[in-house]
Computed example of a mutant assay.
Amino acid sequence: MNTTLILVAEGVWQTPVASKTLPPYDHTHCYWIDTGQGFILIDTGDGVLGTQQLYEAYVALGKPPMQAVIMTHGHHDHVGGANWAYDQWRTPIWLNFKDWELLPEVLQSASYWQDLGTIRSKEFWGMELIDAPGHTPGQINLFLPKHRLLFAGDNLLGNSTSVITPPYGHLRTYLRTLDRLEQYDAQVVLPAHGDVITNPARYITLYRRHRAERLAQIRHALKAGPLSAQELAQELYPGTLQILGERMILSHLQYLVEEQEIILLEDGIHYRLIAP
């Protein structure tokens, strides 16, 4: 079996490339799509560990003409191979520029970038372009109607929930994106990390339930008195996840502030429930 090129549907392949990403993952899944007129690559990994795997996959495909490279969002473990991809194919590289600030500085000076935010038609090389913010301000997802495939970037992950952390992640926006993705009635979700998702509707329901449970845990903890994000993380996340957990707790606290359920105290650190 060629582990650099995995057929997931007719004309669609996955290449898992080693990437410096967040645990429990150590790979970013990149996807090749045969449009009938050329190929599109979705995401490129971090550009450090996985470019050889991408090249081997490209060779295994027969070195087809490349039409474009599309980045689902601006995090380094997705866009890091942009320079390599452009050097290989001299093809446009697309990103929603709402994620421009997330790009590593070395990539911001490149002239090959095209802004997905300027695309007025939802149809994009036979796929539907989906505005899917929340994990980042400019994340996009893609839906391939022919196979009912959803390329979900980091919005749906195969073996964990998505990481939503301020200032670029926003929980309320992310929950609205889950509603939008559910409407596509995808048969299969192809995530950027983890296993392929074959039961998308149930998976999205579990994602929502997880967020609701976390919000309930925070409300319950705050009944005992004001707490900081760090203190909540110590209570709700196991030891090795506390630093990341604190950042994720902040997105839930932001949500509860927006819902006018809690307030941030004058010290700028502690939160308390608003009395009913």
Rank of each mutant, 00 (worst) to 15 (best):
T205A: 15
L232P: 07
E56Q: 12
L107M: 02
R120Q: 04
H193K: 15
I204S: 03
A216P: 01
Q37M: 05
R208C: 02
Y255Q: 10
L253W: 02
G126W: 08
L175S: 10
M127D: 05
P238H: 05
L54K: 09
L250Q: 12
L150G: 00
S162A: 15
T91K: 07
G81C: 15
W89G: 06
H210K: 06
Q183M: 15
Y55V: 09
Q183F: 07
P238D: 03
W84C: 06
V48T: 15
A216M: 00
I274H: 01
E105V: 10
A233I: 15
D154E: 13
T136A: 06
S111N: 09
L49H: 14
L149P: 08
D87R: 07
A57M: 02
L41E: 01
R148L: 07
Y55Q: 13
I42C: 02
W89L: 12
V69G: 05
W32D: 02
E123M: 03
G268S: 03
A224D: 06
I197K: 10
W113T: 14
I6D: 00
T161I: 13
N2V: 10
H73V: 10
A9G: 07
P65T: 12
L129W: 02
L206R: 14
I204M: 13
Y31F: 11
I119D: 01
L181H: 05
L206M: 15
G36L: 05
H252G: 14
I40H: 02
G158Y: 03
D26A: 13
S121R: 12
Q260G: 04
A57F: 01
L116N: 10
W125K: 11
K122R: 12
D99F: 10
L129G: 10
L215S: 06
H193V: 08
D77Y: 11
Y55A: 11
A233V: 04
Y184L: 15
H210A: 14
E128D: 13
L178D: 02
H270A: 04
E235V: 15
A9E: 00
I42Q: 01
T21W: 05
H76S: 15
Q217N: 08
P104V: 09
Q254D: 06
I42R: 01
T51N: 05
S162H: 05
A233R: 13
W32H: 04
G134L: 14
E246P: 12
A212W: 08
T21Q: 08
H270W: 09
N141Q: 14
T44C: 10
I204E: 00
I40A: 10
L116G: 06
V17N: 03
R90A: 15
